[in-house]
Computed example of a mutant assay.
Amino acid sequence: MLEDSHMQENLFFSDEATFYVGELVSKHNIRYWSETNPHVTIETVMNSPKLNVWCAMSKSKLLGPYFFEDDTVNGANYLLMLETFFIPEIRKLHKLRSAIFQQDGAPPHF
C-alpha cells in the first residue's frame, strides 16, 4: 500500500517538541555522553517557561508549526488543535482526496 506514490503524498506523520525559554534542554529527547565524566548530571530549573510545538509532514508537505498556548499538551488542547488547525489545513490541500494521519506514539495499525 505504501508503495503507491499517491498514498505516500497523503500519509502524514506528526510529532511535538518542548522548547524551554532559556538554556534548558528537554532530557526526554537527548542523552549526554562524556568521556571525561560518565556520570555527568545536568541541573534543571523547576517550572521553567516553555513552548510546545507540533507539526506534521508528508512526502512533500509540512503542516505547521502549531504552537500550543498551554504549558502542557493534553487531550483537550490536542483535540482542539486537530479540529481548528490540522483538519482545516488538510482541507486546504484540494488535490488530496483523503489523508492518512499517523499520530505520534500510536502503533502503525491504528
Rank of each mutant, 00 (worst) to 15 (best):
D71I: 06
D71T: 10
D71G: 04
T72M: 08
T72Q: 09
T72L: 09
V73M: 03
V73I: 11
V73Q: 00
V73F: 01
V73K: 00
N74Y: 12
N74I: 12
N74S: 10
N74C: 07
N74D: 15
G75T: 04
G75E: 04
G75M: 04
G75P: 03
G75N: 06
G75Q: 03
A76M: 13
A76V: 15
A76R: 15
N77Q: 15
N77K: 15
N77S: 14
N77P: 14
N77D: 11
Y78E: 04
Y78D: 01
Y78H: 11
L79M: 10
L79W: 08
L79E: 10
L79T: 11
L80M: 14
L80K: 14
L80G: 07
L80Q: 13
M81E: 00
M81K: 00
M81T: 01
L82D: 05
L82N: 10
L82M: 15
L82E: 12
L82T: 13
L82K: 14
E83V: 08
E83S: 14
E83L: 15
E83H: 13
T84R: 10
T84N: 11
T84D: 08
T84S: 11
F85T: 06
F85N: 11
F86T: 04
F86K: 02
F86I: 13
F86Q: 01
F86A: 03
F86L: 15
F86E: 01
I87F: 11
I87C: 12
I87S: 05
I87A: 10
I87Y: 12
I87W: 11
P88Q: 05
P88Y: 08
P88M: 08
P88A: 04
E89N: 12
E89W: 09
E89D: 15
E89Q: 13
E89S: 13
I90S: 03
I90V: 14
I90H: 05
I90G: 02
I90Y: 07
I90W: 05
R91E: 10
R91N: 11
R91V: 08
K92M: 05
K92E: 04
K92Q: 07
K92F: 02
K92W: 03
K92I: 03
K92T: 01
K92D: 03
K92C: 03
H94A: 09
H94W: 06
H94N: 11
H94G: 05
H94V: 14
H94R: 13
H94Q: 13
K95M: 04
K95I: 06
K95D: 10
K95C: 06
L96D: 01
L96P: 02
L96F: 05
L96C: 02
L96E: 02
R97D: 10
R97H: 09
R97Y: 06
R97T: 09
R97K: 15
S98D: 06
S98P: 04
S98E: 12
S98V: 06
S98I: 07
A99L: 10
A99I: 09
A99G: 05
A99E: 06
I100S: 06
I100H: 07
I100P: 01
I100G: 02
I100F: 06
F101L: 00
F101M: 01
F101G: 00
Q102S: 06
Q102D: 04
Q102Y: 12
Q102V: 06
Q102K: 05
Q103P: 00
Q103K: 04
Q103I: 04
Q103T: 04
Q103D: 02
D104T: 02
D104F: 00
D104I: 01
